[in-house]
Design a protein around this nucleic acid. Structure first.
Lengths: 367, 367
DNA sequence: GTTCGGAACGTTAACGGTTCAGTAGCCTCG
DNA sequence: CGAGGCTACTGAACCGTTAACGTTCCGAAC
């Protein structure tokens, strides 16, 4: 038993002396045949060990796979550690569950450019999350004649897009810091390109970052601080390829070692900020008295630390993408009627990790 | 553009005046045709907007879908909150990523018995995790003529099985408590059946639990404590349908309200134990001085609380299941050569939440 | 000059269903 | 009594590939 498929619709039909159509109907349209015959069909099926219509053959005919693909260019395993990615996944799963379709995690390891996986995925659509703009996987997805929704990416013609306005969101956070009086800041950011790099980042690299989100957030910061007279080229920005608390801590250390005078550490993610907090603690710096630290995303761990951050509805991103993909009214064939660009609300959350910088006097003599 | 599939292998072949096979070979076996022709094929493909061989048609022909299904009878969204489930998912994803195959989350909401999703999933195999023994989804999976690996379930004939020896693991924890001197314990456990129930559990219900894992852990406790003369029918066991820290807390409250004399709260999961810790704190009980609390699983959150628990390699469970499923040497057709039953190691971890019970004297006068 | 062998490409037959346009038989109704 | 409609079922086309062989061609070897 449990060997190579033995029975098919045809063999069942032959055994019963009815047409394939009738057998098919027994499974898919019970109202199209007499209950008695249907019962016989199903019984014979059980007897012959026929497991019901083959899903792949059915998909070929109906042009429906019953699943959507999720592409994120990270080791899949990583996705399960980053709370933000997890939120997206959860939201997407939620939307898909409602519609009764599966979510297929498409393997797209950043190392080997295994484009093939994208070509081989039998899915009705793709959600693309957080991949670099120049990622070949993304290109491969766009090639496929199925609807696609991209999250946190720059808008592509004819493709739905979901995400917050990263630039505006970061601008509001920048304003908060500026209002507090910070002028001497440092920045911790995530990976800016596909190649592994860590350390200080030139302005050019910031502007050429292939991750839209990082680019937007850095640009917003630069713009806001330049507007109050800060020379952005003097602002230290440290990049980390990996996105973990430990990397955040090491980035903070690298930055503070070289620029001990900064009064605020702006991080482009909560994870990095949590790492920065750790490093501050190691240095016995009081947060926020000695050092302001801010994050981005609004993940639960950050919440617990009462981090000043920008909350974005991560779960909603995924859910929204799923809904967009699955809404049957929105599509004719596989083309979106009108490609939608949905901008999600963000919220500046002021926690206990931001405060005015100490004045020079305070620095020397304490508060 | 991006409309209904316009070009196929056949139309491309016609356009080029070659056979379909040749076009197919251009994609799948470059060595089977001259580089020059191949170049022409690919170029024409681009011109005609042919996105390459259709994955579903290919799957039908090759009988390979390039994905494995993961069935867990929980709202998918829940799976992303339970660290243990997440670990399994991560491990599975890891193994699949290595092999370049996708992981499809099969929607199987516990409410509506949407068996169909199982039938419709175009996958090369299934991993079944933590579903009740009598779940119709499980039955549907076993019907499918594809290899299956089950995790944390009782052994099914001809199907691979991965999991720890829950009974032995819980027995070792029980021994630890017995050695410490606990005889008056209470138990917090997870869902025991598919129907929603919360509250105290009769012995019969414990033994008839349709979740293998819970059944095994409870049985191990009963056995161990009866061996030292405890009448198990007097031991309060509280069940919670939902598996959250809050539910753990409320379960602990319910139990302690009715049985304030217990010296230890044994929980069948770390999550429940974390809830119990919370409730203990609310009652201003010292843990472990006033009350011993133990968990099960060894999740990071529990680690942080220095919980006494049983560590099990959750990630390894998923990875192992994936490897088993994907190992080409292990199967002829779709039947496993020899169905494997892999028992994973567990480790008793004694943290700071377990200690000897206070003597009666200590209870009245303090330590 | 025939044979041989490999490169390059073609033919045919699945793979396992779904769907749509019938058709036969029976009932109803004016 | 014939038109019309409904029920229950059938036949054939089609979905887009790939697998397993065939065929052709051409230069080298015997």
């Amino acid at each position: 038993m449990r060997t190579r498929r033995q029975a098919t619709l045809a063999s069942l039909a032959a055994e019963l002396g009815v047409s394939r159509t009738t057998v098919s109907n027994a499974y898919n349209r019970p109202d199209q045949l007499s209950p008695e015959l249907r019962r016989r069909v199903l019984e014979t099926a059980r007897k012959l060990g026929y497991p019901g219509p083959d899903p792949v053959a059915r998909s070929l005919r109906t042009r429906k796979a019953g699943a959507v693909g999720l592409l994120l260019t990270e080791a899949l395993s990583y996705a399960f550690r980053d709370p933000a990615a997890l939120g997206v996944l959860e939201g997407l799963a939620l939307a898909c569950e409602d519609a009764g379709v599966g979510v297929q995690l498409v393997p797209a390891s950043p190392g080997k450019d295994n484009i093939d996986a994208v070509h081989r995925a039998g899915v009705d659509g793709f959600v693309v999350y957080s991949v670099p703009d120049d990622d070949p996987h993304l290109e491969a997805v766009l090639q496929r004649p199925v609807p696609t929704v991209i999250i946190d990416q720059p808008v592509v013609a004819d493709v739905d897009r979901v995400g917050p306005d990263d630039k505006a969101a970061m601008a509001s956070l920048a304003d908060h810091l500026i209002e507090l009086g910070h002028r001497d800041i440092g920045v911790l950011c995530m990976r800016l390109s596909r190649e592994r790099r860590n350390g200080f980042v030139s302005r050019e690299r910031q502007e050429k970052a292939s991750y839209h989100v990082q680019r937007a957030r850095l640009a917003a910061l630069a713009e806001a601080f330049e507007a109050v007279g800060v020379d952005w080229s003097t602002v230290p920005v440290v990049e980390r390829f990996e996105h973990t608390i430990e990397d955040g801590a090491s980035a903070a250390r690298q930055l503070l070692d070289a620029h001990p005078h900064v009064t605020a550490l702006v991080c482009t993610s909560d994870i990095l900020a949590l790492g920065a907090l750790k490093e501050a603690q190691r240095r016995r710096l009081q947060v926020p008295a000695d050092l302001t630290i801010t994050g981005f995303d609004g993940v639960p761990e950050g919440e617990r630390a009462d981090l000043t951050t920008v909350r974005q509805p991560v779960r909603e991103k995924g859910r929204c993408a799923g809904k967009l993909l699955l809404d049957p009214n929105r599509r004719v064939g596989s083309a979106a009627v009108t490609p939608e660009v949905i901008t999600l609300e963000t919220e500046l959350r002021i926690g206990r990790t931001s405060a005015p910088p100490r004045t020079a006097e305070q620095r020397w003599f304490g508060p």
